[in-house]
């Protein structure tokens, strides 16, 4: 996917009209990240159903006391809005994948459409951080499939936000702080991931040291 962007002297945008420089990243992220999230939610729902049918069923991702879907999936937090969380994931990620497909086909959504995606991914990222908090400090176990969802939701939110900032969807004016953030987009994302990995490392330190 190595791509060499030639910056013309006139500093014209080389992107197709309507798709900002981040548009290409967003498109691929929606397709690939959305598919990964959809798959993880789907598997979690399948495991959840298996667990309902047979309470002594041990989910495929219950590996040990720390990496244990079973102990996460049976908590109240696993149905935060009264229905199983994976249902929200299946619904949301299916939309994300579909948007990725129509963006690839060439659909250039209007501003309201991007703002709706912003609302959806913002809800997703807030929910995911609440779940990270609960998983680490209340439940005290990690669920591998859930962590896959964490890992795709954060970049989905981040690049949707950057794209909207860069296109001026929030203010209809100049791009403002978005330009600086967009220039360091993957750096900020890497810091974000490292911070979460650090929290996980510290919280379950006693366990990780037993692995080496």
């Amino acid at each position: 996917m190595s791509d060499t962007r030639v910056t013309p002297a006139s500093s014209e945008r080389t992107d197709a009209p309507g798709e900002g420089p981040l548009g290409r990243i967003v498109r691929w992220l929606y397709l690939i990240g959305g598919s990964i999230g959809l798959l993880a939610s789907f598997v979690l729902m399948v495991e959840k159903i298996a667990l309902i049918e047979n309470p002594s069923y041990v989910p495929t991702c219950s590996l040990n006391p720390v990496l244990s879907c079973g102990s996460v999936m049976t908590t109240p937090q696993a149905a935060a809005f009264g229905v199983a969380n994976p249902l929200l994931g299946i619904t949301g990620f299916a939309i994300i994948v579909t948007v990725g497909v129509v963006l690839t086909i060439g659909f250039r959504p209007p501003r309201w459409f991007w703002l709706a995606l912003q609302a959806g991914t913002t809800f997703g990222v807030l929910f995911v951080h609440w779940l990270i908090w609960q998983s680490l400090y209340t439940i005290g176990a990690l669920c591998p499939y859930c962590m896959v969802v964490w890992a795709v939701t954060i970049p989905l939110f981040w690049y949707t936000t950057l794209h909207n900032l860069e296109r001026g969807h929030f203010s209809r004016g100049a791009s403002g702080p978005g330009a600086v953030l967009a220039r360091y987009h993957s750096f900020v994302l890497a810091l974000w991931f490292v911070a979460i990995i650090a929290l996980i490392a510290v919280r379950f330190w006693d366990y990780w040291v037993t692995l080496v």
Binding site: V6, R24, I25, R183
Partner: peptide
Amino acid sequence: MSKEKIVEGGRAWPSANVLLTI
């Protein structure tokens, strides 16, 4: 994720973003 290169005078530089990320 995406390798960005700014081509100036035929020489390719990884952007500050890529360097910082790495």
